[in-house]
């Protein structure tokens, strides 16, 4: 074996927040995944019917890829170096060079080409982040935060994944931390992260983002069976539930992870009422889960009384309403 960097691999629910937290941990900044997610302003909602994934509308419960890492490093004063490549050979050579210097390297990859993924998860999804921590001949050792243990991946497979094509193609994107401050001001960073999420969720310039976006989706979803036909409506609903639960969200479209962050935030900032807000956010997560259960029964053709598009829209409106109150209350606490 050439080198294996002593990297603190910790399994996470979500790739980017997990990578961010683990990279900070390697540099002796203690940071949980939830904390990275919160400081990084990860929570979001967007229903973007004009962007299609497998011919179905894109729904997102988190901010754009790369933003969590960008926001966390900015708010903690960490210096990060990011690179993209035209040449695949150069991209792999640069990775090897950094590994030889004992620097763990984060990479953006396309999950479809990673052989260590369970087959059921292998879709063309180009926003998967992982940390390469060593090379062993033709194999790389990878701390992939959504996996229990460090995994192995052949060089040609990793190269393919780094140069996956399609929407949001990673183009070999890689990053590593260059310098970290002695003791970053976590409380200030938490406040910034909280304020930013409330702002993006409450004050959106367009109707399909933020809490307005959730209500907008509810209106659209209610009309799906009439507008699209029964079969297509079910596909739309299935895709929505997959975006909410499958893509490494920690459950309830990241709402549970955010509730975990609010608990940590209460401690770090000393704003005790955030603890109650965490409990309310947990209830919102439970409501999202209820939406998924009821929707999945519809998809399976096992609808029970109450599993209708109208009822589902009602659940979404409940989420929108309660989330709106929560973000408003957080804003009041910060003032």
């Amino acid at each position: 074996m050439d080198a294996l960097i002593p990297f603190p691999h910790r399994q996470s629910a979500h790739c980017e927040s997990g990578v961010t937290a683990n990279l900070l941990h390697f540099h002796h900044i203690s940071c949980s995944e939830a904390l990275a997610f919160g400081i990084g302003e990860g929570l979001f909602f967007g229903y973007l019917p004009f962007i299609r994934i497998n011919k179905l509308p894109l729904t997102t419960f988190r901010c754009a890829v790369g933003n969590i890492l960008g926001n966390v490093t900015k708010r903690l004063g960490v210096k990060i170096r990011r690179q993209k490549f035209r040449s695949q050979d150069e991209a792999m050579a640069t990775l090897d060079e950094k590994l030889a210097q004992n620097i763990p390297v984060g990479c953006q990859t396309g999950a479809y080409w990673l052989p260590y993924f369970p087959p059921a998860f292998r879709f063309h999804f180009n926003m998967h982040n992982l940390v390469v921590i060593g090379r062993d001949g033709d194999d790389y050792l990878i701390s992939d935060p959504v996996f229990e243990n460090v995994v192995r991946c052949r060089r040609e497979d990793l190269q393919r994944a780094r140069f996956a094509q399609g929407s949001l193609a990673p183009k070999g994107a890689m990053y590593y931390l260059e310098s970290v401050p002695e003791s970053p001001d976590m409380a200030a960073a938490v406040r910034q992260g909280l304020a930013a999420v409330c702002k993006t969720m409450l004050r959106t310039p367009v109707p399909f983002l933020g809490v307005r976006g959730i209500a907008f989706l509810a209106d659209r979803l209610e009309k799906w069976p009439k507008k699209l036909g029964e079969e297509s409506a079910l596909l739309h609903l299935g895709q929505l539930i997959r975006m909410q639960e499958e893509i490494g969200t920690g459950g309830g479209g990241f709402r549970f992870m955010y509730a975990a962050f609010l608990q940590e935030a209460a401690e770090l900032t000393g704003i005790a009422p955030l603890l109650q807000l965490s409990e309310r956010m947990t209830l919102v997560g439970d409501t999202w889960r209820r939406f998924a259960v009821s929707g999945a029964r519809l998809c399976k053709g096992r609808a029970r009384p109450g599993d209708t598009y109208g009822e589902l829209a009602g659940i979404l409106r409940e989420c929108a309403r309660t989330e709106k109150e929560i973000y408003g209350d957080i804003q009041n606490l910060l003032h």
């Binding site: 059921a120 299935g238 997959r242 889960r289 999945a296």
Partner: peptide, 15 residues
């Protein structure tokens, strides 16, 4: 895993 997720994952693969 979770049955709700399994159902919609199956649906995607069926397509």
């Amino acid at each position: 895993g979770w049955e709700a997720k399994n159902i919609v994952n199956d649906q995607a693969w069926a397509t």
